[in-house]
Nucleic acid binder design. Structure first.
Length: 271
DNA sequence: ATGGGCACCTGGCTGC
DNA sequence: TGCAGCCAGGTGCCCA
């Protein structure tokens, strides 16, 4: 569920409670996530001190003085920081108990998320090794996009959702960024001009940045580590607005399916 | 190498 | 009220 803004909001929410704290106990109630929670993860983590909490793409990297825990929230996962003795609810799969008494609790109804051990140098982990640039950092611009699009006939929406092209752009923000850039989602990637790729890169940065600033998008069940929703939903231009008027030109927003996923666009503003 | 489709899972909503 | 069917913030993997 969470895209980059929701993962970043999660990171900012949990980091202050984790950094500098020691993990005193790890409780795994359900190992069957996207990949099984490794046997022995408890032993790896117990007694370790958290040094930092970082994000790469939609992965959270919890660095300790003895290696790094990789966490992914999948479609329905969340991490919350709770007080001692907080009651369990359905799908509370894993707890990291801290020396402060607080608990970092991983909940994931659909179990598409994962918790994996990366040891030192997590960047070399197979899941992270081949990732493209971070959209909010230097090294991502229209030129990068344009170059990678040479010879690529895939639809531009699928192209920007490809983590080898750029990371962190999921289904909501792909539609939103294409609306802002005025590009039809079905346009083959290699047909998008340099100038429009520049506009698209800027739109991606803008929409992700704005979403982070308001705590991400809550459509159904996303909550940040304090249990609060994100407020970007009311700023969505097209996502889940099929049949409603475009905020810019009042044409009805349209729905389409690409790669078995919903796409939304304005047929007038996006060409 | 590229593109397309499937799989993994639970829960909420819709319509008969 | 019950239930089948459809849909959902992701992404690795298999096949042509």
């Amino acid at each position: 569920m969470p895209e980059l803004p929701e993962v970043e909001t999660t990171r900012r929410g949990i980091a202050p409670s984790l950094e500098g704290r020691r993990i005193v106990r790890v409780v795994v109630r359900e190992r069957r996530l996207r990949w099984p929670v490794p046997r022995g993860l408890e032993k790896k983590l117990e007694g370790r001190r958290v040094t930092s909490v970082r994000r790469r793409a939609k992965y959270l990297l919890i660095d300790t003085d003895g290696g790094t825990l990789i966490a992914h929230l999948g479609m329905s996962g969340s991490l919350r920081v709770l007080g001692p003795g907080a009651p369990l609810i359905a799908h509370d799969h894993v707890d990291l108990v801290l020396d402060s008494g607080r608990i970092l609790r991983f909940n994931d109804p659909r179990r598409f998320g994962c918790l994996l051990w990366a040891g030192d140098d997590p960047e070399r982990h197979p899941l992270l090794a081949d990732l493209g640039p971070e959209p909010l950092e230097h090294g991502f611009d229209g030129e990068t996009l344009w170059r990678k699009a040479r010879g690529r006939r895939v639809a531009i929406k699928l192209f920007i959702m490809n983590a080898q092209v750029v990371v962190g752009v999921g289904n909501i923000y792909a539609s939103e960024a294409l609306f802002r850039a005025g590009i039809r989602p079905t346009t083959p990637a290699h047909r998008v001009s340099r100038a429009r790729m520049a506009a698209l890169a800027e739109a991606i940065r803008d929409v992700l940045g704005e979403a982070i600033r308001v705590g991400g998008t809550t459509l159904r069940d996303y909550v940040n580590p304090d249990g609060l929703p994100g407020y970007f939903r009311q700023r969505l231009s097209v996502y889940e607005r099929a049949g409603e008027p475009c905020r810019r030109c009042h044409t009805m927003i349209r729905h389409a399916v690409q790669g078995q996923r919903s796409t939304y666009y304005c047929p007038t503003c996006q060409n």
